[in-house]
């Protein structure tokens, strides 16, 4: 494995069991996360971003089927026992959750959240050392250590989100997964949060999987971006390339490079024509075909491979790959021609 790769996700499938069938929320995900990078993961709501984030830490309950490989430090996390997995969580991989209002235990003081995490992984740490570390973390995030003994409800949303970050940083995890970490914050706090995260990235050389709705956040913070659609990766590339020259029609739609899609604010971003795919009975072939302006016959029949279009910029779209024998590039009757 490439030395610079921190985690390699290989053929990852996640299926939720429901009464009316399995939800295919991650299907054949292949993704490398490099050391020290900020990798943005974008896609409309319901595309499987959180599912993927949780899958990397194997946080799904047993009733959820998860298969594939998660290569991390030469080991496959999928082969780990629950006990081994527990040691990885918090210590090697940590997570910042979407809702800081509900992600802290309401009856536990801020300090105890941090010291409990430290002492769980390093039981020999003294109480004083753990508390000193907690104070130091709060300080890094611009919170006075006086607030260590407060309860979560005494703090504002932005403050709590910083506590969530300090928890994620408390053991110097190698990989931090931030799932919609700013969604619940208002615009001003979000801006502060972004600049804070940027500073932290630089200062601690963090590796972050930044799951977000917010293209602006991705543009400012990420090195690379992975675009997800209907439980699959549509396109992966470095920010510059991907923003300048998106290959996948869905990415193009996302970025508003297609004039027929109007973008107002971040919530409008994905208000693309049509509705997100039903993941219990997903569309055949390319899952985007019901909404794709360029859909061809082959798109209905065959799943496009996530193969490189340019070096380091793979996209799963038949517009960029040779169409296999026996399939046709004829546009679907109601669609326009493929772009030149």
């Amino acid at each position: 494995m490439d030395n610079d790769i921190l985690m390699r996700v290989e053929d990852l499938d996640v299926r939720y069991k429901t009464r009316i069938g399995y939800v295919s929320a991650c299907d054949g995900i292949n993704l490398d996360i490099y050391k020290g990078e900020v990798l943005g993961l974008v896609g409309e709501s319901g595309s499987g971003k959180s599912t993927l984030g949780k899958a990397l830490m194997r946080l799904h309950p047993r009733s959820t089927v998860q298969t594939g490989h998660l290569w991390f430090d030469g080991d496959d996390l999928m082969a780990y026992s629950p006990r081994q997995m527990r040691r990885i969580r918090g210590e090697r991989i940590s997570m910042i959750f979407q809702d800081p209002m509900t992600s802290l235990n309401p009856i536990q003081r801020i300090a105890d959240h941090i010291t409990e995490t430290i002492k769980t992984h390093r039981p020999q740490t003294s109480d004083e050392a753990a508390r000193a570390r907690a104070a130091e973390l709060l300080d890094v995030l611009g919170i006075t250590p006086r607030r260590l003994d407060e309860y979560p409800h005494q703090m504002s949303g932005g403050m709590r989100q910083r506590i969530m970050i300090s928890l994620a940083l408390s053991l110097n995890a190698d990989l931090i997964i931030a799932d919609e970490a700013t969604t619940s914050l208002d615009v001003i706090v979000e801006a502060q949060f972004m600049s804070l995260l940027k500073d932290l990235c630089r200062e601690f050389n963090l590796t972050i999987l930044l799951i977000t709705h917010n293209i602006g956040l991705v543009a400012q913070l990420s090195d690379r971006v992975a675009v997800m659609y209907g439980g699959r990766l549509a396109e992966v590339g470095d920010v510059g390339t991907l923003f300048k020259d998106p290959k996948h029609p869905y990415t193009q739609g996302l970025l508003g490079s297609v004039p027929s899609i109007k973008l107002h604010d971040k919530d409008e971003l994905y208000r693309m024509e049509g509705s997100p795919p039903d993941l219990i009975a997903p569309p055949s072939g390319c899952r985007f075909h019901p909404r794709c302006p360029h859909a061809m016959q082959v798109c209905v029949e065959q799943q496009p491979p996530l193969a490189e279009v340019e070096p380091g910029n793979p996209a799963a779209c038949w517009l960029h790959h040779p169409i296999p024998e026996g399939h046709s590039a004829e546009p679907l009757p109601d669609r326009q021609e493929a772009p030149a």
Partner: peptide, 13 residues
């Protein structure tokens, strides 16, 4: 609750 998932993600037994 979310704080249980968050705790689990920190490796709390």
């Amino acid at each position: 609750e979310d704080y249980i998932t968050a705790g689990r993600a920190r490796g709390i037994p």
